[in-house]
Nucleic acid binder design. Structure first.
Lengths: 193, 193
DNA sequence: GTTTGCAGGGTACTTGACGTACCCTATAAG
DNA sequence: CTTATAGGGTACGTCAAGTACCCTGCAAAC
C-alpha cells in the first residue's frame, strides 16, 4: 500500500499502459487521462517525463516494437524480394502496423515527430536488407553490379507504402506484391545493366 | 442591411471562408468557429450542410482546387518525365499541396474520407498523363512498347509521394527528381524491353 | 535519526474545439 | 397575409490537452 512506485518502475508502468491503449484504440484513442488511469497514476507523472502526447505515443510505440528484420534467402532475387514484401505487408497490416500508420499520419504536420518516427521505423535497416539482397543477386550473377544502388533498393518498399497511403486497406493483395516485383523491381534491376 | 444571404450564396461564402482558412492554417487549423466567423455566419448554417468538419474540409479543398494537369512535350522521355515531376513537386510543395497533404494525413484513419479524397486528388488523370508520355516515347522509338504499363507509369509519382511522406519537407530537392528519373524510371523503361 | 528536497499523487482548472439545442427573425412561397 | 423554412445569435454539453497547487511518501544528506 505504502509502496509508491518511482523512477524506472513507474516509467515502465506508464509506457506499458500507453502501449496497451495504442493497441486497443490507436493513437487518436490514446488519451492522457486513460493512460494515466490505466497506469494507476495521474497525468502529472506523465507530463513530467514527456512534453506532450505525441512524444508519449512514439515512446510507447517503441516500447511495443521490437520486430526483428527478416532476412530471406530463397536463392533467387525474385523469391527474396517477394518474401521481403510479404513480410512487410504482414507487419504493416497487423495491429502493430496500424499503430505505426496512425502515428505517422499524426506526425505528418510535425517535422520533429517525423524525425523521431523515421529513426524508429527501421527504415535504415530495411534499406540495408534490400541492398544485401541485391548484392547476393549480383554474386550469383543474377543482376548487374550497377543494380546495387540505394534508390533501387528503396523502390519496392516505397511502392508498397504508397499502396497503403492510397487505399487505406487493412492489407495489400498478394497480386499487387507480385506485380511490384515482376513489373517494376526486376525490370528495373535488369535495365541497369 | 436586411439582406440575409440564403442557399447558394451563403454556401459559397462558407466554402470560400473555409478554403481561406485551409490555405492559411492547414486542415488542423481550420476550426468551425473560425470558418463561421470568417463567413459572417454561425456554425448552425455550416452543420446544416455538412455533417462534420472533415466533410467541410474536403468540400473546401475541392472548391479551392481546379488545377490543370500539365502536359509536357519536350521531345524526350527524360525531359517529359522530369518536367512532370517538377510540376508535381511544385504543386505539392505549394500551400495548395500542403492542404492536400494535411487532409490526406487526417483521412488516414477514416476510410470514407480516403475515398472522397482519392477521387479528388486526380490520381487517374495523372496516370493517364504518364501513360501518354510513355506512348509518345514508344512512337519515337525511345522505349519498348512493353514499357507502357500502368504500374510503370505510376512509379515516379509514387516515389515522389513517398519522399514527401518520409521527410515532411516543404519541397523535394531537384537532385532527387533527377535521381528518380535517371536511376529508376529510365532504367525501368529500358529493362522492360 | 532528523531534516530536507524531490518525485508521486490528487484534484481542480483553463482553454480550445466539436457538435447540439433553443429560440428569435427575415424571407420566399402559397 | 400567413406560414413553413432557413439564417442568425447565443449558450450549452462534452471531451481532451495541458497547467497549477498543494499534500505526502521516500531516500539520501547531514
Amino acid at each position: 500500500m505504502g509502496t509508491r512506485r518511482r523512477g524506472e518502475e513507474l516509467e515502465q508502468a506508464i509506457l506499458h499502459a500507453a502501449a496497451e491503449e495504442l493497441r486497443e484504440s490507436g493513437y487518436p484513442g490514446m488519451t492522457m487521462d486513460r493512460v494515466a488511469a490505466r497506469a494507476g497514476t495521474n497525468k502529472n507523472a506523465i507530463y513530467r517525463r514527456w512534453p506532450h502526447r505525441a512524444a508519449l505515443g512514439i515512446a510507447a510505440y517503441r516500447h511495443l516494437s521490437d520486430v526483428a528484420m527478416p532476412k530471406p534467402d530463397t536463392g533467387t532475387l525474385r523469391g527474396d524480394a517477394l518474401e521481403m514484401l510479404r513480410q512487410a505487408n504482414e507487419t504493416w497490416s497487423s495491429p502493430h502496423g496500424a499503430v505505426l500508420r496512425s502515428l505517422l499520419a499524426a506526425a505528418a504536420d510535425d517535422p520533429a515527430l517525423l524525425d523521431l518516427m523515421r529513426e524508429r521505423s527501421g527504415a535504415d535497416t530495411m534499406d540495408r536488407a534490400w541492398l544485401s539482397l541485391l548484392e547476393r543477386a549480383v554474386a550469383r550473377g543474377e543482376a548487374p553490379p550497377t543494380a546495387v544502388h540505394q534508390r533501387v533498393a528503396a523502390t519496392p518498399m516505397m511502392l508498397l507504402r504508397a499502396e497503403y497511403a492510397m487505399r487505406g486497406i487493412p492489407s495489400v493483395a498478394d497480386e499487387v506484391l507480385i506485380d511490384i516485383v515482376d513489373e517494376v523491381f526486376l525490370p528495373l534491376v535488369r535495365g541497369r545493366g
